[in-house]
C-alpha cells in the first residue's frame, strides 16, 4: 500500500476550479516535486494534503485514513502526521528558536524533559546547535528555514510538505536547504512533497515530478522522462525552458530554416544516462567526418539519473546515415535550423 493515495481530487472555490480530478500515489521515502506556473493549484493541493482545505470531491488516503471524511476533532490528530514548511517561514517571534521547535511537541502533549531532549536533537540535525536561545528575527533567511524544517519534522510526521520552501532564498542558501532536505530524506526515510515554480529545484533532487496546469495533473513521471519526452507540449516546454540549453540571441536572430552553403546545422540532441560517459562527440566526428561545435548544454543531474541535453553545430548538412544514427542513439534529435558560419 502506498503512503499517500489521492484519487479523483477536485477543489472548487465558487465558480473557480483550483484542482480538477487529480489522482496520484506516493510511496514511503520518495521525494516528489510538484511544479506548475503560478495559479496552477499547487498550494491548494498541498493545503488539501495537510487537511487545511476540504476538497470538493475525491479521496485522500494517508496511511489508509481518508482525510476528506474526518471530523474536525479527528483532523486535529491527523494533521500531526503531516509536517509543513512554508515559503515565509511563519515562525513565532514571541518565542525563541528552541521554543518554536518545541511548539508542535507541546501541542501534542509531550512532557517537558522529553521536549528539551528532542529539541536539542533537532537543532543539531539542522545545524543550529548554538542558536536555540535566539529570536527568529535574529536569524538569516536560510537559518529561519532550518528552524521551519526542524519544527515541521519535530513530531516525526510521515509526510513532509514544502510550499515554495526555497523561493524566498538566494541560490546558495537554496542549495544548502535542499541538501538538508535530501539528508533528512535519506537518514530518516521521510517522504517529501516539494512544490515550487522553479524547475531547477525539482530537477536536482526530485525522484518524481508532478506537473500541474490550470488545476489538472498533466504529467507524473521522472524528471529525466519529462525532459526527454516533453517535446511538443507547449505547457511543459514553458516550464522546462529554464533548465534547457537555449540558443544565444545573436545566433537565434541569424537562424534560417533552409540550409546555407558553408553554414552550420544546429541540432538539439538529448542523450540518456549511459551517453554521459561515452565519447559521443568523437564518435560522431570520426564516423561521419563532421566538425562539431558545442553551442550550449551538457550533462545534468535529474534526480538520481544523468541526462545530456545540448545544442550542437555540425559543419556539414546531415546525411541520411547520420540522421538514422542520431535517431538510434539519442532520445531526441531536433534540427533547430541553420546559421552562416564565420571563416
Amino acid at each position: 500500500m502506498s503512503l499517500l493515495d489521492v484519487s479523483g481530487l477536485s477543489c472548487r472555490f465558487g465558480s473557480q476550479t483550483a484542482l480538477s480530478d487529480i489522482s496520484f500515489q506516493v510511496d514511503k521515502g520518495e521525494i516528489i516535486g510538484v511544479i506548475g506556473s503560478s495559479g496552477a493549484g499547487k498550494s491548494t493541493l498541498l493545503r488539501c494534503l495537510c487537511a487545511l482545505e476540504r476538497p470538493t470531491e475525491g479521496q485522500i488516503l494517508l496511511e489508509g485514513a481518508d482525510l476528506t471524511q474526518l471530523t474536525e476533532r479527528e483532523l486535529v490528530a491527523a494533521r500531526r502526521k503531516v509536517g509543513l514548511v512554508f515559503q515565509h517561514f511563519n515562525l513565532l517571534n514571541s518565542r525563541s528558536v528552541a521554543a518554536n521547535i518545541a511548539l508542535p511537541l507541546e501541542i501534542a502533549g509531550w512532557a517537558g524533559g522529553r521536549i528539551t531532549e528532542r529539541v536539542e536533537e533537532l537543532l543539531t540535525l539542522v545545524g543550529l546547535e548554538s542558536h536555540g536561545y535566539k529570536r527568529p528575527s535574529q536569524l538569516s533567511g536560510g537559518q529561519k528555514q532550518r528552524v521551519g524544517i526542524a519544527r515541521a519534522i519535530a513530531n516525526s510526521p510521515s509526510l513532509l510538505l514544502c510550499d515554495e520552501a526555497t523561493s524566498a532564498l538566494d541560490p546558495h542558501t537554496t542549495t544548502s536547504i535542499l541538501d538538508l532536505l535530501v539528508d533528512i530524506n535519506r537518514s530518516l526515510g521521510l517522504t517529501i512533497i516539494l512544490i515550487t515554480h522553479e524547475m531547477e529545484v525539482v530537477r536536482r533532487f526530485a525522484h518524481r515530478v508532478l506537473v500541474l496546469d490550470h488545476g489538472a495533473l498533466i504529467e507524473n513521471g521522472s524528471m529525466a522522462t519529462l525532459m526527454r519526452d516533453s517535446r511538443g507540449d507547449p505547457r511543459l516546454e514553458r516550464l522546462l525552458a529554464d533548465t534547457r540549453p537555449s540558443l544565444p540571441d545573436t545566433l537565434r536572430s541569424q537562424l534560417s530554416t533552409v540550409p546555407l552553403p558553408d553554414g552550420l546545422t544546429l541540432v538539439r540532441v538529448v542523450l540518456g544516462p549511459q551517453a554521459a560517459k561515452t565519447p559521443f562527440l568523437s564518435v560522431l566526428t570520426r564516423r561521419f567526418d563532421q566538425a562539431i561545435t558545442l553551442i550550449q548544454g551538457g550533462t545534468l543531474a535529474c534526480g538520481s539519473e544523468l541526462l545530456t541535453d545540448m545544442i550542437l553545430g555540425f559543419s556539414e548538412p546531415l546525411s541520411e546515415p547520420l540522421i538514422s544514427f542520431l535517431e538510434q542513439e539519442t532520445h531526441v534529435t531536433e534540427v533547430l535550423g541553420y546559421v552562416p558560419a564565420d571563416h
Binding site: C50, L52, R79, L84, L103, I107, A108
Partner: peptide, 20 residues
C-alpha cells in the same frame, strides 16, 4: 500564516489564541 502553522501542527483553535 502563523495561525495556519499552528493549525497544521494539530493545534486547536484555543491553542491558536493562546500560542499565537
Amino acid at each position: 500564516g502563523l495561525i495556519e502553522a499552528v493549525r497544521v501542527m494539530g493545534g486547536t483553535r484555543w491553542m491558536v489564541i493562546r500560542y499565537v
